[in-house]
Nucleic acid binder design. Structure first.
Length: 913
RNA sequence: GGGCGGCUAGCUCAGUUGGUUAGAGCGUCUGCUUGACGUGCAGAAGGUCACAGGUUCGACUCCUGUGCCGCCCACCA
């Protein structure tokens, strides 16, 4: 007999089991070669550091679905990987080398990338180890990295293909520039935050006869330092204040230039002075206006965000320049007003530096056509969001999308597969056009070209820029399956069944996958998008290193086990809602695991009961089942049906709670307690059938809990293997729980009538215990109980059969199940439950005052309910409109309550007398 | 400026077709060496389901509005 420790110790067990699963190949879809394909591509964690709670949660959720579907016999593929996370990782490594007082420029591109690769090696291993610790049943033989050779190939192919489709173009536009990272960012990589500033009013003199005159025009700005880049002043065409000024020139102080006063409908007459300075190279609004009026652009900033050489305040950063220019304007009398003002400022999502709108030449993806298709497939229900409200968020973003800037001036990432022929470039330059036509000298190819296809020249220079990290992530659902090759995996598993990720990356990632999949695969990437919330700390604060409230999942696993941690994310949660992580929850779930362990220990390995001392085959024989057996089997099959339905509806939180309660309440607290006397029976058949019932319930329970708590269920499964073998219908293929089949509800065993009687039976036991407890008597004070049924009440037989159980469980001294009211006993406490009268007699005198209090409390409660019911039933509308079934139920309740009231009142009378 | 979520027992949260006395875990109180589990067992207290209207025979659940907390989006000089 296997040793069964008193307390479940997950240490050692978890790693041992995981190794067995992995080495047996159970994580591969090939375990069910003929199964229906079911695929989830794992969101690849960034290799910026170790895993956090958010990762632990997604592993728990995805593994739950993966294991559930595997048990349903499907060919399940959960494909793991990690993400190079271009900008984030580059920043992390930059910080790392800063400790050695080095910048990436000190090292140079090649050396710097060596350092990053070393980092990738180190953290990649840590991350995959951590994912294993959590019990993830993903197929490591198919593991990928967003910058491995195959991903690289996919990225180059994608870029080339989209370029060929004219969905990718290069151009000079106003973009978001991070002066710290020194790269362009996409719109959604800019985080906006309210910040306090000053709104200055500047006066620009109007030119008169070629000279600045007396009159002036006032403009409001929060960024006075940009005035040296102004190329116009704009007013609303209908603004009566400025009618005569439109078309005139204004004098730009400091820069000492003349700029035109123009009219544009985009100007808000209500704001500030109604006149706005136009700085096209450093403001998105101004850029738009300038384009319409063909105004020149003046770039005043360097890539580091400092004022350019030869300009006012050269070399200063923006804040310093602002101070200096304010001083100058003030002394020149050009500053007429300054007020406090709050406005929204963009920040880099990776380093929080203030973003500068900046003119730059970059690569873009045309999004209009792709976004329209994306909206269409969602509208057609081809992609379904859980929770549904996320659809709106997705749609809103898709519907307001600008072109996607995909080039980055970073070193770490996929280098753009574009080469520039230097010969063609020179020719193009010689043309001396206003703008270079880059297409003339650009070669985009997924292979490095040997020579220019135009001129045959070999002086080719590769674009030094890399791609947005989300570009390669956007290909993830198909690049991981082998695309652009027509691999068997791609054919079999694409489109994937589900994308499970956090709602915080709907735009960054989910949307990009949809766009790129439609563009390159001409198909959706996944059918369902399940979005989980954020894991916060116990007080609802976002976990962050700076706050010091980060909880390390590995520490929790070490202390409470991976199963307990998983339950913390899987029970009592709703899709899309943030969850607060507190250790208290995990403690509770650790206790649940221990409960399950001990239930098994008792049920199958308790020496005293000498279970299974007789080795024999168990043929399921319904006719031999005892009442408790039939009851628990009915409950079990009910639970199987319900849990399956809930899981199919993605409601794993509710399914889990259902299982938790079934195991703890129905199975442990009631059935196993009842089994104790059943197993005492002299009757061999009785014992055997009870053992079989325990075994069958446990078998199904372990199966259903396995997706939630895979380690402990597998461990128990292995330990009870020899018992399971005794089941006549045992399937050899179920030697390992991970690949065992999900249970099917046996409707024939569901018995609603029996469950109802059992409920009344349980309630009556609890009521007796309650009376005992209220009378301040210990459990050892066992009463004598008489339970009286009316003449033809069929429940009599059930109670009769459960007599011994009742004595044992309540516990009682003795019980009489009767059809007749017992002889009058003044000491008897009576209650009515579902038309059954129960008389309880303790041999100890009970406190009359206490008893009166109890009775009055009950009476008060009854009065309230009776009042409510009477009003309800007196309402003709209710009687007429409510379904007969509901009315009937209420009437019955009324009768019952009246009866209870009567009984209580009589007792009160009796005690009084 | 637009949109979304939360507001249910002291705390953390469940609650999808509107219909018993609104549930769980933790915490609290009382009792228990009941043949597996004190990481346990038994019992109890604790809620006008944020507020105000409306629809309905009936609303935690549907509609409208309000308040507080939080989030997302937006080219607010």
């Amino acid at each position: 007999m296997t040793e069964f420790s008193k307390v479940y110790d997950f240490h050692e067990i978890e790693d041992k089991i995981y190794q067995k699963w992995e080495s047996s190949g159970f994580f591969k879809p090939e375990v069910h070669p003929k199964g229906k394909p079911y695929c989830i591509i794992m969101p690849p964690p960034n290799i910026t550091g170790k895993l956090h709670m958010g990762h632990a949660m997604f592993v728990a959720i995805q593994d739950l679905f993966i294991r559930y579907h595997r048990m349903k016999g499907e060919a399940v593929l959960w494909l793991p990987g990690t993400d190079h996370a271009s900008i984030a990782t580059q920043n992390v490594v930059e910080k790392e080398i800063k400790k050695e007082n080095l910048t990436r420029h000190d090292l140079g591109r090649e050396k710097f990338l060596e350092r990053v690769w070393a980092w990738v090696d180190e953290y990649g291993k840590i991350i995959t180890t951590q994912i294993r610790k959590l019990g993830a049943s993903c197929d490591w033989s198919r593991e990928r990295f967003t910058m491995d050779d195959r991903a690289n190939k996919a990225v180059n192919h994608a870029f080339t293909e989209l370029y060929r489709q004219k969905l990718i173009y290069k151009g000079k536009y106003l973009i978001n520039w991070c002066p710290r990272c020194q790269t362009v960012l996409a719109d959604d990589e800019v985080e906006h935050a309210e910040s306090e500033a000053k709104l200055y009013t500047l006066s620009y003199p109007i030119m008169e006869n070629g000279k600045p005159g007396e009159a002036s025009i006032s403009v409001a700005t929060v960024r006075p330092e940009t005035m040296i880049g102004d190329t116009a002043v704009a007013v609303h065409p209908d603004d009566p204040r400025y009618q005569d000024l439109v078309g005139k020139m204004a004098f730009l102080p400091v820069a000492e230039r003349e700029i035109p006063i123009i009219a544009d409908k985009r100007v808000d007459m209500e704001f500030g002075t109604g006149a706005v300075k136009i700085t096209p190279a450093h403001d998105f609004n101004d850029y738009e206006i300038a384009r319409h009026h063909n105004l020149p652009l003046i770039n005043i900033l360097t890539e580091e965000g400092r004022i350019r050489e030869g300009m006012f305040g050269a070399g200063l950063d923006v804040v310093q320049a602002r101070r200096k220019i304010i001083k100058t304007l003030r002394s020149g009398g050009y500053l007429s007003k300054e007020v406090n003002y709050s406005h929204s400022v963009g920040h880099c999502y990776r380093c929080d530096t203030t973003i500068e709108p900046y003119i730059s030449t970059q690569w873009f993806v045309h999004t209009e056509a792709l976004a329209a298709r994306a909206l269409q497939v969602v509208a057609d229900g081809k992609i379904h969001f859980i929770p549904q409200r996320m659809t709106k968020i997705f749609n809103h973003w898709m519907g307001n999308l600008h072109d996607w800037c995909i080039s980055r001036q970073l070193w770490w990432g996929h280098q753009i597969p574009a080469w520039y022929c230097q010969d063609c470039l020179e020719k193009e330059k010689a043309r001396d056009a206003a703008e270079l036509d880059y297409r003339v000298f650009t070669i985009v190819s997924d292979q490095e070209p040997a020579s220019c296809p135009q001129c045959g020249g070999t002086r080719l220079e590769r674009d030094p820029d890399t791609l947005d990290t989300w570009f390669s992530s956007g290909l993830w659902p198909f690049s991981t399956l082998g695309w652009p090759e027509e691999t068997p995996d791609l054919k079999r598993f694409f489109p994937t069944q589900m994308m499970e990720t956090g709602y915080d990356i709907i735009f960054f990632w989910v949307a990009r996958m949809v766009l790129l999949s439609l563009g390159l695969m001409d198909d959706i990437p996944f059918k369902k998008v399940y979005l989980h919330g954020l894991v916060r700390d116990a007080h609802g604060e976002k976990m962050s290193k700076s706050k010091g409230n980060v909880v390390d999942p590995l520490e929790i696993i070490e202390e409470f086990g991976a199963d307990a941690l998983r339950l913390s994310f899987l029970l009592n949660v709703t899709p899309g809602n943030d969850i607060k992580f507190s250790q208290d929850k995990t403690v509770g779930y650790r206790n649940f695991c221990n409960k399950l362990w001990n239930a098994t220990r008792f049920a199958l390995f308790s020496k005293k009961n000498a279970f299974y001392e007789e080795l024999h085959l168990l043929y399921f024989d319904e006719s031999k089942l005892s009442l408790p057996d039939r009851w628990i089997l009915s409950r079990l099959n009910q639970v199987i049906a319900q849990a399956t339905r809930l899981l199919d509806g993605y409601r794993f939180g509710e399914a889990g709670t259902l299982l938790y309660e079934f195991v703890w309440n129905d199975f442990c607290d009631w059935y196993l307690e009842m089994s104790k006397s059943l197993l005492d029976s002299e009757d061999w058949d009785r014992r055997s059938v009870t053992q079989e019932t325990i075994l069958r319930v446990l078998q199904a329970v372990l199966k259903m809990l396995h997706p939630y708590i895979p380690f402990i269920t597998e461990e128990i499964w292995q330990r009870i293997g020899s018992k399971l073998h005794m089941l006549a219908d045992y399937e050899k293929s179920e030697r390992d729980l991970i690949t065992a089949s999900w249970p099917k509800a046996n409707k024939a065993l569901i018995n609603d009538g029996l469950e109802t009687v059992f409920q009344v039976w349980r309630d009556s036991i609890q009521k007796i215990r309650n009376i005992r407890s209220e009378a301040d008597l210990p459990p050892s004070a066992k009463p004598i109980v008489t339970i009286v049924f009316t003449g033809d009440d069929a429940r009599y037989d059930t109670f009769k059969e459960l007599e011994e159980q009742m004595i044992r469980l309540t516990p009682l001294k003795q019980v009489a199940i009767s059809r007749e009211i017992p002889q009058k006993d003044d000491a008897a406490i009576e209650f009515v439950i579902s038309q059954i009268r129960v008389f309880v007699v303790f041999d100890k005198q009970i406190d009359r005052g206490k008893e009166m209090l109890r009775l009055h409390a009950e009476l008060d409660d009854l009065e309230v309910r009776l009042g409510r019911l009477a009003a309800l039933l007196a309402n003709e509308q209710f009687v007429q409109n409510a379904p007969a079934e509901v009315v009937g139920r209420e009437r019955k309740k009324m009768e019952e309550l009246l009866h209870q009231k009567d009984v209580i009142e009589k007792q009160i009378e009796r005690i009084k007398s």
